[in-house]
Amino acid sequence: MKGSNKLEELVILSGKGGTGKTTLTSAFAALSDSLVLADCDVDAADLHLILNPTIVKREPFVEGNEAIVDPKLCTGCGYSANFCRFDAFRKEDDGTYSIDTIRCEGCGVCVRLCPASAIKFEERHCGHWMVSKTRFGTLVHAHLQAAGENSGKLVTLVRKEARKIALEEGKKLLLVDGPPGIGCPVISSVTGADKVVLVTEPSLSGLHDLERVSRLAANFEIPVYVCVNKADIAPKLTKEIEKSVKESDNKFVGTIPYDEALVQAQIKGLSPMEYLSAAGRNHIEKLWENIWETN
C-alpha cells in the first residue's frame, strides 16, 4: 500500500469462526489512515459494535423470488408439490397446500406447473444494506433477515458499493471483514480481492479449517498472509502452523498472544489499538507491517 495510489482490497478470513476476524479488522482499521470498510459477514455482522456507525444510507435488499400459494385458488391437487426438490410444500388442514418460505429456493418450477395458476412468484426481501460514517472511515454493511438466503449476492453488493465509495473518496485501502467457512459467502468475499489475511488459532480445528480456506484462496491465486491469534494457548501448535505456512506459498506475518484485554476493548466498543497497552499493540502493528512489507 505504501507509496502506491492504487486501491488495494484486503479481505480477512479464517475458515473457523471466532478466531478474531472482526477484532483484527477493527485493529487494522485504526492503523490505516486511508480506508473504506466492508462488513461481509452479513449473517452475523459484528463490526458495527466496535465502529459505532452513523448510518447515512439504508437500502432494502431484494434477491430472487419466492413461491407463494394463494389458498383461494389452490385446488389441493398436489401436482407441483411432486416436483419440488426442496421439500417446501406443506399440506394444510383444509386440503390446500402452502409453501415453507424458509425451504423454498425460488426456482419457479411449481409456479410454472400449477394447473390452477394458484402459485405467485414474488420478490424476496432478504434484508438491507447500509452506508455509514465511522471514526475510521466509511463503512458499508448489511443485515440479512433471520433465516434468510445467503447466496453471496448481498456480500457481492456490499463489496461493490464499498469499492465504489473507496474510489470516489480516493482511498488506498478497502478492508473487508469476511464470513467464516468456505461456501458461497466466502467465495463472494474473496473473488477478485488483492490480498487475503487468514487469522487462525492454534488448535486442531483452527489448523484444519485454515488448510481448507487456504486451498480456496489458492484457487483464486490471491496472495495469502497468515497470522495466529491466541498463539500461547498451544505454543507447539503455533510453531507447527508457522512452519507449515512458511513451507507453503503463503506468508506468515506473526502472532497475537491470548489477551483478555481484547475482550475488554470489545466491551468498551473500542478497537484494540485504542485500548491495548503498547506491548499488546505492538504485536498487531508488526502483523500490519509484515503484510505490506512482504510485497
Binding site: L144, A147, N150, P180, P185
Partner: peptide, 14 residues
C-alpha cells in the same frame, strides 16, 4: 450446526 443465521443453519435446525 454451522455458524450464522442463514440457509445452512435453517436447514440444520429444521
Amino acid at each position: 450446526a454451522p455458524p450464522g443465521t442463514s440457509c445452512p443453519v435453517v436447514w440444520s435446525l429444521s
